[in-house]
Design a protein around this nucleic acid. Structure first.
Length: 323
DNA sequence: AAGCTGACCAACCGCCCATAG
DNA sequence: CCTATGGGCGGTTGGTCAGCT
């Protein structure tokens, strides 16, 4: 017997969100803040499940979401964090605050999984270093001898260290949470911008086909988003700016702009901070933790991250005591 | 031009966890 | 301690579109 559904199935709308619904949701969140999702459908009049509202906000409407294709650097990070953490998309997303876990998950499933499989095929015959299909590398070595396992582990650790070190030293161009570097605002889309784009796409689609149902609008928008994902304002996004201004005056949404990295880290990735807090809590019992958790602790430890030189000084010998 | 197929991605679903009462 | 509830997460589905035959 599972949990009862989060809301009545009867009368609840499903499927793609319309711009009108998005506006209603954004204006509600602007007024009340994210949270208490249960109350959102009743207070906004949205005929949507509360969960659906939360998902729509976190995956699409919240400020600080970057859309469009992934950069090489992001791709690298995802691959390596996935190898290290497994399919912990929320945890991975905490390192890429401008990406949602859903985005990362989708990107992994559609692009990287295949890529890694090809790579694995190429590398078959070596060892299972590239075995990422089942998520955690570390767990795939159960049947190997201890020595082999340790070598594999050492390689994993080195790989992770290199990955993080290179990622952290890449001109600080990625707005990692812990670094608290100002986010490149141009690459972000605030809620206002998101909505503006939504409206724009919707208007465009309805102007070309007035009878077009709103189902397709959200997909049109998604395509539009990709076209301007590089942060360079396209002609379309300039049009969006006009709408944005209109919306700003309508809802007073300028306060949504991630004016500081602190705000960004709070709004863009609450999961990350929560994750880090959880890890912190676990540190007290480190001595009894499995290595995977120890590694996570090490990777996420604030001091380690901040003093990134330390990353390379981690030795497998330090972990030997664990066994 | 029509049909087919695979890629992509937004959204849904079910389970789990934390917490308030 | 137990239960109900809200929120979060990962897996999966289904609609749309582009490319190919």
């Amino acid at each position: 017997m599972g949990r009862p559904p989060c809301c009545d199935k009867v009368g609840v709308k499903k499927g793609p969100w319309t711009p009108e619904e998005d506006i209603m949701l954004v204006s509600y969140v602007q007024e009340h803040g994210p949270g208490n999702w249960r109350a959102v459908p009743t207070k906004t009049g949205l005929r949507r499940c509360s969960k659906s509202c939360r998902l729509r906000w976190t995956n699409y409407l919240r400020p600080g979401i970057k859309r469009g294709s992934f950069t090489d650097q992001e791709e690298k990070m995802i691959i390596q964090l996935q190898a290290l953490l497994g399919n912990k998309w929320a945890a991975i997303a905490s390192y890429l605050p401008e990406r949602t876990d859903n985005d990362i998950k989708n990107y992994w499933n559609t692009h990287l999984k295949k890529k890694m499989k090809n790579l694995e095929e190429k590398c078959s015959g070596d060892d299972d270093l590239f075995s990422v299909e089942n998520g955690h590398n570390l767990s795939s070595t159960n049947s190997t001898s201890r020595g082999q396992w340790e070598r594999t582990l050492q390689a994993d650790i080195n790989m992770a260290k290199k990955a993080l070190h290179s990622a952290l030293s890449l001109e600080n161009s990625t707005p990692y949470i812990k670094q608290e570097t100002p986010a490149p605002v141009s690459t972000y889309a605030s809620s206002t911008e998101n909505i503006a784009r939504l409206l724009q796409g919707w208007m465009r689609s309805s102007s070309t086909n007035n009878s077009e149902n709103s189902k397709t609008s959200s997909n049109n928008i998604a395509t539009t988003d990709s076209s301007s994902c590089d942060g360079t304002p396209s002609a379309e996004s300039k049009g969006g700016m006009v709408l944005m201004e209109a919306l700003e005056s309508l809802f007073g949404l300028e306060s949504f702009e991630p004016s500081s990295s602190d705000q960004l880290s709070q709004t863009a990735s609450p999961e990350g901070s929560k994750f880090q807090v959880e890890i912190k809590k676990e540190e007290n019992t480190n001595s009894q933790l499995p290595l995977s958790v120890m590694l996570e602790n090490w990777l996420l430890d604030e001091n380690t991250i901040q003093g990134k030189d330390d990353l390379t000084s981690f030795s497998f010998d330090e972990t030997a005591d664990l066994f």
